[in-house]
């Protein structure tokens, strides 16, 4: 009955207009529709309910219902999902859809419930983190040398840049815009939607379409909250999550071309890495992948992932 009607609180790390918000809105409308208006949810944008990492703990304890956050903020709590954050594992949106919605995705969801006490119910596809900088067009690893690049405090990203021969600067997100503006750092990497939403075109000139990380941002629900729901409501939540995932993929397909045009109009120059990115890929995968085989569950897991998207296996 209406007595157990819920208004779920959903923490959203990014601002309005972001892919995260699109997933959230997709979820809320599907939830309202599937539950016949009984349940709804409120989005708290811009990290108002705490940093993305904090929300994982809060959901695990049951003091927060749901959160939409970057996968690399889930990895510290459930290391096996780190496979999606390794450089050059995912090379297209189709790869991402296949991996997250297939058996690999199901297994990682199960792991996350056990490890972190949260359940992934939808996937946001935010796109590749492309490189921007204020100094020069970057097409090769050699072009990258001498640039000061901001990265989040993330081991994999730091190691990747090191594999390319530069030592990146870890900087808090809150300081990044000012850092780029004043030139404390020359560049950064983020998906197109973020670059547009944060108006990085005001302080950056060159974009390079590197594909080292495809940004995936799951919608998680507190497993404790989930288990307290009736079986019927649980199914509604899962179905609403599927609808949100579909909405997210559609959002990315619609948006990315549109945003590229906006950035060009704002005077940015967009280029692709030379030789289909081969040099970047080789350096990054050789240096970074082996360091993380253990944390993602062994080299077999890595090969299972590669097999699923039709790529050659790696050996020790």
């Amino acid at each position: 009955g209406m007595a157990d009607a819920k208004n779920f609180k959903i923490a959203v790390g990014d601002s309005g207009g972001s892919s995260q918000e699109a997933t959230g809105l997709g979820f809320v409308s599907a939830l309202e529709e599937l539950s016949g208006g009984k349940h709804t949810a409120t989005l708290f944008l811009n990290g108002q309910l705490g940093s993305e990492q904090d929300t994982v703990n809060e959901a695990a304890i049951g003091t927060l219902d749901m959160s939409i956050l970057a996968i690399n903020n889930v990895t510290p709590f459930s290391p096996t999902v780190g496979v999606f954050s390794l450089p050059y594992v995912i090379l297209s949106l189709e790869d991402a859809e296949k991996l997250t919605q297939g058996p690999i995705g199901a297994e990682l969801t199960e792991n996350t419930i056990n490890d972190a006490g949260v359940r992934i119910i939808a996937w946001t596809y935010t796109g590749f983190r492309v490189l921007t900088n204020s100094k020069k067009p970057v097409k090769s690893v050699a072009d990258l040398q001498g640039l000061v690049i901001r990265v989040p405090k993330n081991e994999i990203m730091i190691d990747t840049y090191k594999a390319w021969g530069i030592s990146p600067t870890p900087m808090a997100w809150s300081e990044t815009f000012a850092g780029l503006q004043t030139g404390v750092v020359d560049g950064q990497d983020n998906p197109y939607t973020t670059i547009n939403a944060m108006k990085f075109y005001e302080v950056q000139k060159y974009v390079t379409n590197i594909r080292y990380i495809f940004s995936i941002e799951p919608l998680i629900i507190s497993e404790q909250v989930f288990q307290e729901l009736s079986a019927e409501d649980q199914q509604i939540i899962l179905d609403a999550g599927k609808a949100a995932t579909a909405a997210s993929a559609q959002f990315l397909r619609d948006k990315e071309a549109e945003i590229k045009q906006i950035l060009l109009d704002e005077g940015m120059e967009i280029s692709d890495p030379e030789n289909n990115e081969e040099e970047f890929i080789k350096l990054a995968t050789e240096a970074v992948w082996p360091k993380f085989y253990d944390s993602i569950g062994g080299i077999e897991k890595m090969n299972a992932v590669l097999a699923e998207i039709g790529r050659d296996p790696v050996s020790q």
Partner: peptide, 19 residues
Amino acid sequence: GENPIKFVQIAFTSVGSFP
């Protein structure tokens, strides 16, 4: 009727920022 355990994490993260 909410669990104030989130105070603990907030204590840590409200203060633990570089700026």
